[in-house]
Nucleic acid binder design. Structure first.
Lengths: 344, 344
DNA sequence: ACTTAGCACTCTCGCCACGAGAGTGCTAAT
DNA sequence: ATTAGCACTCTCGTGGCGAGAGTGCTAAGT
């Protein structure tokens, strides 16, 4: 509930906008000077005092200007910020880049990460789309060299999995083709358990293969997100709040350590916002690891069929307006691409 | 040529070892105290003076101890350091981890990066093995969903390439299988140009495919290194020399920016050392980008068939002994794995 | 000829004091 | 409700100062 007067909301918004831009504490005088308020500094000071007592602002020390608290940022994002859109020409350039990128999904991912990083001037991450429940569609077995075999598995929904494996003894490509052909007939459209059930009708070679297929199919249950594409990691070092090495390091670790990331993404994405964009500000109490960071992220893709996640990580003092609209736009764009890819 | 007296060599080695450990300028007194030299500080000071005039040491300011120059480090690495081996039990643990990792090449790469980062406490990078000249071996075409097709290309040498592509209109899996089968017969073992030469004997669908195959085969000529696996990026922030944000950022950028990396790896790996381990100290004059970093790297794999690169990047004040032996050991290990994979 | 004691010299670093400046909170007047 | 005025507090940059570290040099010792 908004228990703030209209003027308090205005002042809060101005303070936050200004601080995001300058990284300097904002004073009463500065506000009236730069934003043409027709009130005196003293009046503004009273409002600042009120906002401070409400917990939305704080002062680094007695005689400094005000700085937003995490609560302040949250209020700003929820109530004050309003929806913004990426400028039309920026949108066009981005779309154009994807148009040029062709159809390579990996390329999309890299490009998406790059664009996000560029636009937000923060660290970006994108996970490849993958489906939640997996039904077998097609298998290929390709002898590469020596005893090494490449198993390529296509799932309903278009996800492609591959796995290198080594067999006890060499098998010719012809044999592989036969096995693959046979399996394709047998287990078409099946779920992991169904596949496992028919294993005893097969030759030992086929059984070996099937065991791996089942393993792969099962693996989809976890939030195993395949490759994670990162970009703009060095951007975080530009922000003055990461002048302290230890905090900068913590931010980088979040992006580096796989388990941390998986945990983060999986728990967050459940509670999805209106248009699916999530904003995590300063750990929200429960995430000690990212106590100095904020994250903006969103899912993309077709729910239940093929989805992925993308987002940016930056200092708490980030441009939420710009980053949220960028993330929303990119999520939409990637969703369109996935959709287009799926359509018959 | 080693125009240093034996004692100068000893002193230089001690200074460098000590500085690498403590990151503090080393004084004459400190040397005699900690390393049981049976000479007085004054004597040591004379040697320090000589080494300074020769350009191997310098002092940050008049009344500080000595610090190695880049030249000093180079001399140390070339002449003083001697060969070291990773401790046997460390070797065992690493091998064990790879044993558990199974046969997935991607998994190897990730693990290798992780181990390197862990051991060196610096940033690690590993590129997947790929072959230098590509001869076609096998193709598979797999219809995934909608008009999307996955083309999997196996090259002589075992490298696997894949490419998603979208066709103008849907084609059934049966047709694809037929096309793939036909192509496999026709262009077995061929080089890019040979493949291009026979294009006119084919159907339009086949021609479309072949065009992409040729493109992929050609692409091997570049030093296009496929995926690059990174780890331990946050380690660089621990080093005191990266207290300055700008230098830390530069180091991170080297690892992030693809073109920079490619350039670096390609030019360096040509001039390979005795056992193939390269040490680049502080840019060596020509590489302004990494003027505050050192890099230790090596190729692995089977030359001409399938090779990759791996290495670590850290501050100039890095433990060359440990890092060189780690890199050498890992290169050997990955070479063994690749070999084993190749053997019939 | 090498080694070393002695010493003056230089430079850094931490500390403290000090003054300017910034910005506040409060009170009293409008 | 607003605002002028003012005292108060805190930061920050500066400069001075003394302690400490480590050197380079010279002259004496082995």
């Amino acid at each position: 509930m908004s228990n703030l007067t209209e003027r308090q909301r205005l002042v809060l918004a101005l303070v936050i906008r200004d601080y995001i831009e300058t990284a300097q504490p904002v004073s009463s005088l500065h506000l009236v000077d730069h934003y043409g308020l027709d009130k005196s500094p003293a009046t503004v000071r009273n409002e600042l005092l009120a906002l401070t007592e409400l917990g939305y602002l704080r002062q680094p020390h007695t005689s400094a200007g005000r700085v937003p608290t995490e609560e302040g940022y949250r209020y700003f994002v929820r109530q004050l910020m309003g929806q913004t859109e990426l400028p039309a020409n920026t949108q066009r350039t981005i779309v154009h880049q994807f148009f040029q990128a062709g159809q390579d999904v990996n390329h999309w991912m890299r490009l998406a990460a790059s664009v996000l990083a560029q636009q937000s001037q923060a660290a970006a991450l994108v996970t490849a789309p993958h489906s939640d429940r997996s039904f077998f569609k097609h298998i290929e077995l390709i002898s590469t060299i020596g005893r090494q075999v490449l198993m390529v598995l296509v799932l309903e929904g278009g996800e492609v999995r591959q796995q290198m494996l080594a067999l006890a003894e060499p098998v010719s490509q012809e044999q592989f083709s036969a096995v693959a052909h046979n399996l394709n007939q047998l287990i078409q459209g099946m779920h992991a358990d169904q596949v496992a059930a028919i294993a005893d009708q097969l030759t030992t070679l086929e059984q070996d293969i099937v065991k791996l297929v089942v393993e792969e199919l099962h693996r989809s249950g976890d939030i195993r997100m395949g490759e994670v594409f990162r970009d703009g990691l060095s951007h975080v070092l530009l922000e003055p709040e990461f002048g302290e090495m230890e905090t900068a390091r913590r931010a980088l670790r979040i992006l580096e350590e796989r388990p941390l990331l998986e945990d983060l993404l999986s728990r967050t994405v459940l509670s999805s916002d209106a248009d699916g964009v999530q904003v995590l500000i300063g750990g929200e109490g429960t995430w000690e690891e990212l106590s100095d960071c904020s994250i903006v992220l969103a899912r993309y893709g077709v729910p239940g069929i093929a989805t992925g996640t993308l987002g940016v990580l930056g200092p708490i003092r980030m441009s939420y307006g710009r980053n949220i609209s960028t993330v929303r736009f990119m999520a939409g764009l990637l969703s369109d691409l996935v959709n287009e890819m799926l359509e018959k």
